[in-house]
Amino acid sequence: MSAPVRPAHADAPWASALLAGAALLVAIVMLALPLAAVFAEALRRGLPVAIDAIMEEDALAAIRLTLIIAAITVPMNLMGGVAAAWAVAKCEFPGKRLLVTLIELPFSVSPVIAGLIFVLIFGAKGWLGPWLQAHDIQVIFAVPGLVLATVFVTFPFVARTVIPLMQEQGRDEEEAAATLGASGPQTFWRVTLPNVKWALLSGVLLCNARAMGEFGAVSVVSGHIRGETNTMPLHVEILYNEYQFAGAFAVAALLALLGLVTLAAKTLLEHAAGRGAGGAA
C-alpha cells in the first residue's frame, strides 16, 4: 500500500510537523521564557512581597510620573499623528516623501541619542542651558525633559499606523463630502475618523505602551532623582542595581502586564478592524 497521494509542491507531513515544532520551540525559548521569568522572579518571595514593592512610596511616585508622562505625550502625538496622516494621505504637496521619512526617523535613532539631543539643547552646557538657568527653568532632569524625550521616541506610532490605511481608502469619500458642502471638520469627524478609528486606536495603544515603557531616552534626561524624576522603568533599574531583585521584578511584572494588555487589545482591535472591513465590503 502506498501513502495517499500528496501534491508535489506540498511538504511531507513529518516535515511540516518538524517545522511547526521547531517554530514553537524558538518562540518558547526566545519569547515566552523571558516573560515567564519576569513573573517567576517577581513571585519568588511571595505575592505579598511583590505587592509591598509596588505599594512602596518611591514605586508609587514612579508609577504616578509614568502615568503623567503618558497622559501628556499620547494626546500630543495623537494630534500630530492625525494631522500628519491627513496631510500625507489626503493631500498632494511637494516633498511628501521627505516628510514621511522625517516622521519615521525616530524609529531608527537609538533611544540614548533621543535623550542626548535634548540634553544638547536644554542641558546645563547646551545651547539654551545658560538662558534657562538665568530664568530658573529646569528642563533636563525634570518632567519637561522626560516628556520631550518620550514625545520624540513615540512620535511615529500614530502617523505610521494611520497613514497606510488612509492612503488605501483614497479620498473619494472626502471629496464627495466636500461636494455636498461639508466643512473640513465635518468631513474629518463624520467621514474620515470613523473609517480609521480601529487603526487609530491601535496606534494610540502602541504609542502609550512605548511611552510608559521607554527606558533609554528618559534615562539620559532623568537624572534619576527618586520620587521626582524616576519613571517605572528607571525605578526597575535602580532596584535591580541595588540587588533588590524582588522589588525590581515586581515593578517589571507590572510593566510586563501593561505590555500583555497592549498585545491583547491590539489583537482584538485587528479582529474588530477586519470585521469592520468585511462588513463594509
Binding site: L31, P34, L35, V38, P111, L206, A209, M212, G213, E214, F215, G216, M232, P233, L234, V236, E237, A252, L255, A256, L258, G259, L260, T262, L263, K266
Partner: peptide, 8 residues
C-alpha cells in the same frame, strides 16, 4: 518584544 519595555 515590541510591547515589552526594554528594561523588563
Amino acid at each position: 518584544p515590541f510591547a515589552l519595555p526594554t528594561a523588563v
